[in-house]
Design a protein around this nucleic acid. Sequence first.
DNA 1: CAGTATTCGTTGCAGATGCAATGAAGTCAA
DNA 2: TTGACTTCATTGCATCTGCAACGAATACTG
Lengths: 154, 154
Amino acid sequence: MTQDTETRPKTAPPDFDLDGFLPYRLTVAADRLSAGLARRYREEFGLSVAEWRVLVHLVDSGSVSVRDIGQKVSLEKSKASRAASRLEADGLIEKGINAQDRRLLVLSLTDEGRALMAQLLPLAIAYQDRLEQLVGERLDALNEAIDIILKEDP
Amino acid sequence: MTQDTETRPKTAPPDFDLDGFLPYRLTVAADRLSAGLARRYREEFGLSVAEWRVLVHLVDSGSVSVRDIGQKVSLEKSKASRAASRLEADGLIEKGINAQDRRLLVLSLTDEGRALMAQLLPLAIAYQDRLEQLVGERLDALNEAIDIILKEDP
DNA sequence: CAGTATTCGTTGCAGATGCAATGAAGTCAA
DNA sequence: TTGACTTCATTGCATCTGCAACGAATACTG
């Protein structure tokens, strides 16, 4: 008897390798990547990831509602709302009211916010460049794979 | 004058595309993937992601300490500790003491825990298979890219 | 128009999170 | 052996998180 079937009854779980499990791998990789950046945002600029995302969106898109932001940069509306409030308290953005639809907010960068982003974005761009260097020839496949995941939403 | 330099002073932030920013892309993709699975774990089995990771590790590795788990499945030690306590309260694992080093816990699956994993793991395996189907030929490059990120830890 | 339904942003709240502090156990060097 | 360090797991605590509920504003419908 090479197998002790007494100790492996019909409830024996199948083999499974967590280290090869894609949702786990992606989560760990994303956490690693975000951790370094998030620490820099926080230590050097006092920003959370949510606040940074809101700011990034406001750089291109002049005036936006909280909901627009949530959709565009993948933030819960409560998270987006609280991030916006903190940013306003810090003087980085301004909140106005949309005259056409007074339920909507109109968020926009202050000069101070714009100046901060002029400091921040080059860091992010350099980080992205470094990452693309590291990933090398696999970059296209990586981006395609991510697009597939985002599109299919399995 | 094609550029109104008055409105773009030296503080003008550079162009930046968040949708192409790899840390953001990875985070969103990982969140999407995890969300679906996490909901199933929770709704069908009452497990959090942390609890599920602990269980998975215990399937292969007979008896482990909290610290081993934390390292192996990327959990904060407090998170691993609390997950283990909940699992013990649910009767899915048992906590013993290591006789050689009585600081260490010895966690192991109960029969009930093993039976649960026999139900759970086939789901995870099927999910992984489906994902690999979706990603198709890009799978190797995707895994290599993740390995690079995990190894370099930028 | 009146009345209902929907959307927007905020907030209350219960639970999760991460960090630091703690106590118990072990190691090491003099 | 003693005393200073280190390691392990837990826990306290301040903060964060996501969801549901809410008030205000708008859209829809008969």
